[in-house]
Design a binder for these strands. Structure first.
Length: 642
RNA sequence: GCCGACAUAGCUCAGCGGUAGAGCAACUGAUUCGUAAUCAGUAGGUCCACGGUUCAAAUCCGUGUGUCGGCACCA
């Protein structure tokens, strides 16, 4: 006699066990048509699930956010059926919904190519049109293994074998096609709709482990309706236009070439951008109690052995040898051992702590070829690196200070929002569990004090300590770690750093490894995408173009440019014999934030007409006034606040 | 590193066995013009590299390098 409580508080009683389908139908034909699944006491289940006891039921319709996930998951099943119909002998593995879509991993000797897509999509539409109901059934573990083994689906059999003992093993059929799946699903394949599109193929390791077989993955996107799909595809096309590799080329910021794989050639305009960021960072660090240092590029392997990096990262280090000396040097992949060497010069007192040592250190890492990506993941990069030597008691304070500094800097660079991940101890690590308990505890405590919301990233910490990762997202939706704060109780021990405590005893300092931008290359790459190349005046490589209308104004335009340069602005003078329309277009395409137009009239009145990028209005100002205004606008935010 | 795709003029791309093409940019000339492309002309290529197949290769095959999309990695 289940009594069903609905979201509006009303209660409906039934004489016997009922399915969601029946309940929905009892409420009305509209809901009967719209209900795709339901939540019973908060748990998402198939609409066909039988409800035996009193329960609160919420029906899921296409409008609900969760429906989108179900459409994508079901679409993955439709994809799998289509692939097996078209390519017999292909084994299915897993196919979850993901952000914006879904994927399915297949085991097949010959990987799929995008040329297979039209046929697969056509078959998928056919399966959707069949509208076969999704039917759930429960199977015994051994039967399940036998069933899939007999079908030649060894991956599915392996999945069942590895499910926890208590887990109910369920199959879902759609017509003749059957898949191992936890569910839930919508009513039938027809509910998937037709607003889907296969996007790309890729290799992916079985269970994400590179020691396992390489599977063939097909990615797709799926939406409620065509309009949503079109909007998504349009968004992707727009995002492509913001790609830093494209903008870097168009604006002439940098280039990469084969002879220096993974290293950036910064062009004058790109380097201007870089330096504006670096100058800003240097000011911020100076004011925040950091001392800047510079440590060697090449350091003997002995130091890397002592630090533990040689053992763990040797194959990712660039190694140098000289003929006459029997020495092996490594290009530094990081700055920390160097900073410890500076710390160790002379006797340190507790009075010097916390000691914050910063370096814009150029590091080299032999990154796997497949990891390289534009200027975001390179083999040669510069970090805004610093190490804070302090007592354990000070970890929380320093973390709070760091988060405040980072937030302020990110906001200045146009990132008011960012996400934080807390990475805990990895399987392979240095240091005792006790030390790790300490480090993780201190960091968690500090986050609580600083009011930092984070998600846990289990097992992803550095080998010497837990870390916070500050994550920004690029134009294409990929997440990149930029800032980081890592607690290290291991390296000071390994490299024997110590200080004299208040009581005269020798103690180990704690090291906090921290970076705000992370690598300049990566951060600038993301910033280019964030602004789509349309930088605020303080960052723009070229801040003002002075463009003439007639050659009679050339001389005065030269004066204008000189006055702006004297005020510290980066200015280009355009006296070419082109129409003003063409000049405006050319510099707009180059994303110059301000164009100062000078014609005969301005020359006579000693004025300039300022035009903003993307705007149509122009402001005509006296020369002095214009210079003052632009000087203020070009002032970096930290100086503007001062 | 692994799977797949791609590599043609400075840029974006077409050509896919029979003497290498377009638009934009560049250069030259004319035009002095008021806020997102003035007109005309000229020049520009070991078709990524190295092998192979063929009477003939940018085009087909192999190897390498790089790039792109994922996976794995990321001190």
């Amino acid at each position: 006699m289940p009594a069903i409580t609905l979201p509006d508080g009303s209660v409906r009683s039934f004489d016997a066990t009922v399915t969601g389908t029946t309940v929905a139908a009892s409420i009305g034909p509209g809901l009967a048509r719209a209900a795709l699944a339901m939540k019973v006491d908060g748990r998402l289940v198939d609409l066909s699930t039988e409800i035996a006891a009193d329960a609160a039921v919420v029906f899921v319709t296409r409008r609900d956010e969760i429906a989108l996930e179900m459409i994508r998951h079901d679409c993955a099943h439709v994809l799998a059926e289509a692939v097996q119909e078209l390519f017999p002998g292909t084994q299915v593995t897993i196919g979850p919904s993901i952000e914006n879509g879904f994927y399915y991993d297949f085991a097949r000797n010959e990987p799929f190519t995008t040329e297979d897509f039209p046929a697969i999509e056509a078959k998928m539409r056919e399966i959707v049109a069949r509208n076969a109901p999704f039917v759930r059934s429960v199977i015994d573990r051994d039967e399940g293994i036998a069933y899939f083994t007999a079908k030649g689906e060894k991956y599915k059999a392996e999945l069942i074998r590895d499910l926890p003992d208590a887990e109910t093993i369920t199959l879902y059929s759609q017509g003749d096609w059957i898949d191992l799946c936890r569910g839930p699903h919508m009513r039938g394949t027809g509910d998937v709709g037709t607003a889907f599109k296969l996007m790309k193929v890729a290799g992916a390791y079985w269970r994400g482990d590179h020691r396992n077989a390489m599977l063939s993955r097909i990615y797709g996107t799926a939406w409620r309706d065509q309009k949503e799909l079109d909007a998504h595809l349009h968004m992707l096309a727009e995002a492509e236009k913001r790609d830093h590799r494209r903008i870097g080329k168009e604006m002439g910021l940098f280039h990469l070439q084969e002879e220096a794989t993974g290293s950036v050639f910064w062009h004058p305009k790109g380097w201007k951008l870089y330096r504006r960021a670096e100058d800003y960072m240097r000011r911020r660090l100076d004011l925040s109690g950091y001392q800047e240092v510079k440590t060697p590029q090449l350091i003997d392997r002995a130091l890397w052995e002592a630090s533990g990096h040689w053992e763990k990262f040797r194959e990712h280090m660039f190694v140098a040898k000289v003929e006459d000396e029997d020495k092996t040097l490594a290009l530094k992949p990081m700055n920390c051992p160097g900073h410890v060497q500076i710390f160790k010069q002379g006797l340190r007192s507790y009075r010097e702590l916390p000691l914050r040592m910063a370096e814009f250190g150029a590091c080299h890492r032999y990154e796997p070829s497949g990891a390289l990506h534009g200027i975001m993941r390179v083999r040669s990069f510069v970090q805004d690196d610093a190490h804070i030597f302090c007592t354990e008691a000070r970890i929380a304070d320093e973390t709070v200070r760091f988060v405040a500094l980072l937030s302020s800097i990110y906001a200045d660079f146009g990132f008011p929002e960012f996400r934080v991940k807390f990475s805990t101890r990895p399987d392979l690590r240095a240091g005792t569990d006790e030390v790790w308990d300490h480090a993780e505890g201190a960091l968690a405590e500090a986050c609580a004090t600083a009011g930092v919301d984070y998600t846990i990233n289990p097992g992803e910490g550095a080998f010497y300590g837990p870390k916070l990762e500050f994550v920004l997202r690029d134009a294409i939706g990929r997440d990149w770690q930029c800032g980081t704060l890592q607690v290290d109780l291991v390296l000071p021990e390994r490299l024997d750093a110590e200080y004299v405590a208040e009581d005269g005893s020798r103690k180990r300092p704690v090291m906090l490894h921290r970076a705000i931008l992370g690598s300049f290359e990566r951060f600038l790459g993301i910033m280019i995408e964030q602004y789509a190349g349309r930088f605020p005046v303080w960052l723009a490589p070229v801040q003002v173009v002075v463009a003439t209308i007639v050659s009679d104004a050339d001389e005065y335009a030269g004066e204008v440019a000189a006055a702006l340069r004297a005020a510290g602005l980066t200015v280009t003078l355009d006296t070419t014999n082109q129409k003003i329309n063409a000049k405006i277009r050319e510099h707009s395409v180059q994303h110059v934030p301000v164009i100062a137009v000078v014609g005969r009239k301005e020359a006579e009145e000693r004025k300039v007409a300022l035009r903003r990028l993307g705007g149509e209005a122009q402001t005509v100002l006296g020369l002095d006034e214009a210079v003052g205004l632009l000087r203020a606008e070009a002032s970096p935010p930290d100086l503007a606040r001062a």
